[in-house]
Design a binder for these strands. Structure first.
Length: 403
DNA sequence: AACGTGCTCAACCGCCGAGAT
DNA sequence: AATCTCGGCGGTTGAGCACGT
């Protein structure tokens, strides 16, 4: 149930803004400000536009100091790190990138960074319109609960209980960063069917094991100083909880609920899972320039972490410097990742990480797709079997944290 | 040159939370 | 406490452009 429209749509102009409209809006706001009421603003200045449209136009385009154009490597890295950690909270990510708008960042992620990191192509709209079952199931948007991606009925039935596309992307990204086997938990039991695939998929990704060692997902194995706490975004007076990387596997709604619980508990790191209390591990961010920068105050802060990015990030997990390097290297193709532009201009190839039997695992998105599709099935079926020793699915099985 | 396909990005849509009434 | 209004946000769309055949 939505709220009533903010304006009379019939009498409101839509579509691209003309230079005249831009000039009117800009001149008025620069002189008078918004007056605290966007809805009333268009009438005041004689624009046949919805107030929300004016707001958007101002914030995304007309506002002073807006940066347009290519993102720098550091900006990319910050976006990536934050996306892993907090998901598609574009406004918060944008707050860490002065001059960038959430819309810009969202677009950049969806059109470039996502492909760069996950090495996948979004299904074309034509394909989506045709409801191509392969694309729907295999192009990384399985189980999407959002409209327009997966409309076939079987998938839709699953999607209602399954992971959001955003969460799945974060899972995939983490898998790439941590190595699939780490994501499934090293305690995977090869006799357990649900873990067999994960064991089989264990890649020999160089060096990245350090990430999962420090970022260990199993609560009991986390070092105390790597335990999750609340991520607060001071300038927004808003609490965020790192859904712990793969806890991103939990539905966004579940994550939000967990967040709310944690926030309402005064930022306490504990929450009640079906098996009892445990703490959520955290994931830090990294900027390549962070070591040279002092925290500037404000921005994202992890309350037990070391300062990281200029905005003031901190934390363990990716927080250890060599681990930051791993992420940075990954982003910029030191490992020959899916990145298209390495530092030296060399165009790397997609890594083909090998299973013990020689089958490629990383770089083959169908592998991820198969797993994530399975995850959906497990979820629909109750999925307790995958709870043990598998924190991704553990969080997922929890569903909302209010159980 | 014509056509098909993919990509980019500005803009829209609808939901949510907060504050006001 | 209930309802209304608004700002804010994330997801999605579609026009225009680029590129390949």
């Amino acid at each position: 149930m939505g709220r009533a429209p903010c304006c009379d749509k019939a009498s409101v102009k839509k579509g691209p803004w003309s230079p005249e409209e831009d000039a009117k809006l800009k001149a008025y706001i620069e002189e008078h400000g918004t007056g605290g009421n966007w809805i009333a603003l268009p009438q005041k200045i004689g624009l046949k536009r919805c107030g929300k449209s004016c707001r958007l136009r101002w914030l995304n385009y007309l506002r002073p100091n807006i940066k347009h154009g290519d993102f720098t490597e550091e900006e990319e890295h910050i976006i990536c790190s934050l996306y892993i950690s907090i998901g598609s909270r574009w406004s918060i990510i944008a707050a860490q990138l002065p001059g960038r708008t959430d819309n810009d960042i969202k677009n950049y992620w969806n059109t470039k960074l996502k492909k760069k990191l996950l090495g996948k192509r979004a299904p074309s709209r034509r394909a989506r319109a045709n409801q191509d079952p392969y694309l729907a199931a295999g192009a990384g948007n399985m189980c999407s609960t959002s409209g327009g991606v997966n409309n076939n009925s079987a998938a839709a039935a699953t999607s209602t209980q399954a992971l959001s596309a955003s969460a799945l992307e974060r899972i995939q990204l983490h898998m790439r960063l941590q190595g699939i086997y780490g994501a499934f938990g090293c305690s995977a039991d090869a006799n357990d069917d649900s873990n067999a695939a994960a064991v089989a998929a264990a890649p020999q990704w160089p060096k990245l094991e350090a990430l999962l060692q420090a970022n260990r997902l199993l609560p009991g194995s986390l070092p105390a100083d790597a335990m999750a706490t609340t991520v607060s975004v001071q300038q927004h007076h808003q609490h965020l909880v790192d859904h712990q990387s793969l806890a991103a596997g939990a539905s966004d709604a579940a994550a939000v609920e967990g967040e709310q619980q944690l926030s309402s508990a005064g930022g306490a790191a504990n929450y009640m899972a079906p098996g009892g209390f445990f703490e959520r591990p955290k994931l830090g961010f990294y900027s390549p320039s962070a070591e040279a920068e002092a925290p500037a105050g404000g921005g994202v802060e992890m309350n037990s972490g070391a300062p990281m990015v200029g905005g003031g990030y901190g934390g363990a997990g990716f927080g250890a410097h060599h681990q930051h390097d791993e992420l940075y290297d990954f982003l910029y193709s030191k490992y020959g990742s899916v990145g298209e532009l390495a530092h030296d201009g060399h165009v790397p190839t997609l890594p083909e990480l090998q299973c013990p039997d020689g089958a490629a695992v990383v770089g083959a998105d169908e592998k991820f797709s198969a797993w994530t599709a399975s995850a959906c099935d497990y979820g629909a079926a109750g999925g307790h079997q995958i709870q043990q020793g598998n924190s991704i699915m553990h969080d997922y099985v929890l569903g909302g944290y209010d159980q």
